[in-house]
Design a protein around this nucleic acid. Structure first.
Lengths: 138, 138
DNA sequence: TATTACGTTGACGTAAACGTAAACCTAGGA
DNA sequence: TCCTAGGTTTACGTTTACGTCAACGTAATA
């Protein structure tokens, strides 16, 4: 009836909460790893008594961490990125520093992009040679 | 005068030889690292008495190792790749296994490519937000 | 009520990839 | 002949990123 109420799914999403083993399953990592990331100051789950309760934000943070890992970033580097994404009120100078870090990250990603292109090309080449050698060996 | 002789530069390249500190300088790594890679069976430089002499092939191998590192590959993984590139006479089965490894490497590189695209997009987004916040804070 | 499942906090262990220091050799100048 | 600059081996130390117990709490379930 009301066009003013936010969708229930949105409400549900905001309230979405995971246990530590939920996340471990979803991301195929161990609970130990998740606790370790917390000890490194990368996660700060809520608590129900002793038990950790992870929000959607924690979920996203974990996704960032693991994406970083796949790209060979250290946890320290991913932590910087994550902190960068977390809104921090600051002065112009600090904004400037964040912009520099963004540029830095971009630079690294571009280098990796370049490395991947070369590796792909070399794999292609090698595959061709392999096919030839295989034919010759028949 | 002869169209049969290989170019001198090619000869020169084959003879190209580096000391360990030459390579350390060129790649901006320590000699310790280079010796470590050898101890891991990834390099096998010639010797002049005690001293190591690195060929063009060693140079290329080092390049592969470092490219792998930039992409977050372990030395063990890079070693596999390097061995894959080294011509090994084998049977059809072994060729098949090499082809599978090539596919595997490609898969990983594609995942990384995808991760990079997402990261880049997120960096762009965040930069936009930063600019807005900076304007607002003036 | 006893078990099972899942959670917690220590705390020590481990693999990878070098760093660092000691103790030595050796060829080429001053 | 004595440095100095480079090279060598051996060996222990260090950082990162968790793995692996142990010892315990708690909630649902047979």
């Amino acid at each position: 009836m009301s066009s003013m109420s936010k969708s229930n799914t949105e409400q549900a999403n905001k309230a979405a909460i995971y246990t530590i083993s939920d996340l471990a399953q979803k991301f195929d990592i161990t609970t130990r790893a998740i606790r370790f990331y917390e000890s490194e100051g990368m996660l700060a789950p809520a608590r129900d008594g002793q038990k950790r309760l992870y929000s959607q934000k924690d979920y996203v943070t974990l996704k960032l961490i693991l994406r970083g890992k796949r790209l060979g970033w250290s946890l320290a580097e991913s932590k910087e990125l994550i902190q960068m994404y977390n809104p921090q009120s600051g002065n112009q100078d600090q904004y400037q520093r964040v912009l520099e870090k963004i540029e830095e990250s971009r630079g690294r990603l571009q280098q990796q992009l370049h490395d991947i292109e070369i590796m792909m090309a070399e794999l292609d080449e090698h595959e061709q040679r392999m096919h030839e050698v295989m034919k010759a060996s028949l």
